[in-house]
Each structure stands twice: as structure tokens, then as C-alpha cells.
């Protein structure tokens, strides 16, 4: 069961490009977002993770000015995106979860349409090259593959040189090579000082690109912080295998809980100061093995992964508060 402990993303050190405070959005009786708060500063990528229906897209839509919050405030570059849409034109852009482009225009006509109507423009050839669509510039959008359409979406979002970029699952449908091309582009945008909000189901993408990560569940941010902060407290695992029959009584290690599955024994060390306690447990395990003249096969120490945290949040487990994060 989920506990009532909720997490706000820690305040970033400088002025926010995006500020969300106690955001709540409902559709009829469905409360899609329930009191979400976070900030994103220029040059930072904030990743919003969560299962389908967790409230990520609704949060992005509120930032796009598309969704009227039931409660709370949303500010993008200091402005209300719903009321000051024109003032934000070109300064904020987005890749939607769904590709929305004119199928009967060519790639170059589509990008030029957005570029020429914006006061802030990047070089067309550089944009085409950055999304690896130079060779398809003359192709009708309707003839592009799914991955190419997603890259065109990204091109349309970056061609106006936005200060804030909202990316809703931008790499869905891309092959690994195209995904890496997009990651390189996003990394460059971060270096340029763009504030980016990313939602993705690819946890590796979040680990690689995000400065801070938040995991949402049922409309709330359950855990948030830097990758280290999010992973802290989710435990290290010590595992090994014993040849032959498993031990009936695995050794008692200080601060570690044992699970025996066939030949494999796994200890989980979590809670405060878990790294030091994992080290002590490893030492105690070595002593136990020497005393019983046993070989510990496949002995390994695993750090908790983002996937572990994600799954624990999705399963409704209690999530410990990361260091430096306010509840």
C-alpha cells in the first residue's frame, strides 16, 4: 500500500524557468494530478516518470496552457501559460505524445512554416542535420516512418530556439540509433541553457539525461531528486550462489535481510547508511564462508536501479525520503 508520505522536488538553486506549485487537475470525478510541485531552472532537464495514467501528460498539458488547473499555480518563464500564450510564443515549445503535422507538406516545408512564423530561428540545415532528416527533407511527412515523424516533431520544437522545452515521450517509436541522435541533441540543448521537462518510459533515457527525476503515481510525485537521491535508501543487494543444496539457515548478516531462492541467496540492505552496512555485511559473509569452507559463486553487490524504484512506486510501496528532499 502507498503511504501518505509525498515528495516535492527539491528547490533548484537559481531562478526557475518553470514553476509548478500544488498543481491539481481533474476530469469530472477523476483527479488526474493531485498537488504536484516542482521547479526547473535554465540548463536543467527534469524527468517526470510514472506508469500510464500517473498524471505526467496532464502536468505537461497544464504547462502548455492546455489544461486549466483545478488548484495550484503554473508559471512558465514567470507567466501563466494559459493567459499569456502569445507572450510565450516561440519561447516555449513542445513535443506532444502524438505526432501532429501536415501529412501533405514536405519535411522542409513543415519546418520552414514554423521557422518563418517565429521571431526566434535556428539555421534550417543545422536543425535538419541535428535530427538526421537531411536526406528526407523533400519527402512528404505522410511518407515518413514513425521514428522519422518523431524526429520531425523534435525539429519543429527546437527550430524556434525555445527557452523551455516540454518533451512528452519524444523517443517513443525510435530505433536505438535514432534515440541516441535525439539524446545528443537534447544534451546540446541543455548545454545551451534550455530548461527541459521530459516524460519517458525509457528509464535509461532519464538516467542518462536528467539532472533531476520525479516518479509520479496516481497524480502525485512519490519520489524526486537527483538520481543518487532517488536511488538512496532503496537498498543494495548482495547475492551469491552455493553449489548443491541451499543453506537451511543462511548466515545472519548485520542489517541485511536474506531471501533464499533455490541455490541463490540474496540479501537486501536498505535504509539509512546502507552503503556502509552493505560493506560490513559483505565482510561478515566472507568470514562465514571461510569458516564453513564454502565457495560463494557469482558473488555480487548490486546497487538499486531506477527500475527498482519505479516498480516500487508503481506497486504502491512506501518510498523512503531521499536525502535533501523536503516532504
Amino acid at each position: 500500500m502507498l503511504t501518505t508520505t509525498r515528495t516535492s522536488a527539491p528547490d533548484p538553486p537559481t531562478a526557475s524557468a518553470v514553476r509548478v506549485r500544488d498543481l491539481a487537475c481533474s476530469y469530472g470525478d477523476v483527479r488526474a494530478v493531485r498537488g504536484v510541485s516542482f521547479d526547473i531552472v535554465p540548463g536543467e532537464l527534469f524527468a517526470l516518470l510514472g506508469t500510464n495514467g500517473a498524471g505526467k501528460t496532464t502536468t505537461i498539458e497544464a504547462l502548455e496552457g492546455f489544461r486549466n488547473p483545478t488548484a495550484g499555480t503554473v508559471r512558465v518563464l514567470g507567466l501563466d501559460p494559459r493567459r499569456r500564450r502569445r507572450a510565450l510564443q516561440g519561447r516555449v515549445n513542445a513535443v506532444l505524445q502524438e505526432s501532429g503535422t501536415f501529412a501533405d507538406l514536405t519535411v522542409i516545408e513543415t519546418i520552414e512554416l514554423v521557422r518563418r512564423t517565429s521571431g526566434r530561428r535556428r539555421d534550417l540545415d543545422e536543425v535538419l542535420s541535428a535530427v538526421d532528416l537531411t536526406g528526407r527533407a523533400g519527402a512528404r511527412v505522410g511518407h515518413l516512418s514513425g521514428g522519422q515523424k518523431r524526429r520531425l516533431d523534435l525539429a519543429l520544437a527546437v527550430v524556434t530556439r525555445p527557452e523551455v522545452l516540454l518533451l512528452d515521450e519524444p523517443t517513443t517509436g525510435m530505433d536505438p540509433e535514432a534515440r541516441r541522435t535525439v539524446w545528443a541533441l537534447i544534451a546540446e540543448l541543455i548545454r545551451e541553457g534550455t530548461a527541459i521537462l521530459l516524460t519517458t518510459h525509457y528509464l535509461e533515457e532519464a538516467e542518462r539525461l536528467a539532472d533531476r527525476i520525479a516518479v509520479m503515481h496516481h497524480g502525485r510525485i512519490e519520489v524526486a531528486g537527483t538520481l543518487d537521491q532517488v536511488l538512496a535508501g532503496h537498498g543494495d543487494r548482495i547475492s551469491f550462489r552455493l553449489e548443491g543444496s541451499p543453506p537451511e539457515d543462511p548466515p545472519v548478516l548485520p542489517g541485511a535481510e536474506a531471501v533464499v531462492e533455490g541455490e541463490r541467496v540474496t540479501y537486501t540492505v536498505d535504509g539509512a547508511d546502507h552503503a556502509r552496512r552493505a560493506h560490513r555485511a559483505m565482510a561478515a559473509l566472507g568470514t562465514w564462508a571461510d569458516r564453513h569452507r564454502l565457495d560463494l559463486l557469482d558473488l555480487a553487490l548490486h546497487r538499486a536501479s531506477l527500475e527498482d524504484v519505479f516498480l516500487r512506486v508503481a506497486d504502491g510501496h512506501e518510498i523512503p525520503t531521499p536525502t535533501g528532499v523536503s516532504r
Binding site: E64, F66, R85, R86, L88, Q89, G90, R91, V92, N93, A94, L96, E98, S99, G100, T101, F102, A103, V114, D153, L156, A157, T160, L166
Partner: peptide, 11 residues
């Protein structure tokens, strides 16, 4: 086809 939404989002 989400074209209107895309145009709206781009301002």
C-alpha cells in the same frame, strides 16, 4: 490528427 493541438502548443 493532433495538428491543431501542435499548432496551439507552439503558440
Amino acid at each position: 490528427q493532433f495538428v491543431l493541438k501542435r499548432l496551439r502548443v507552439s503558440g
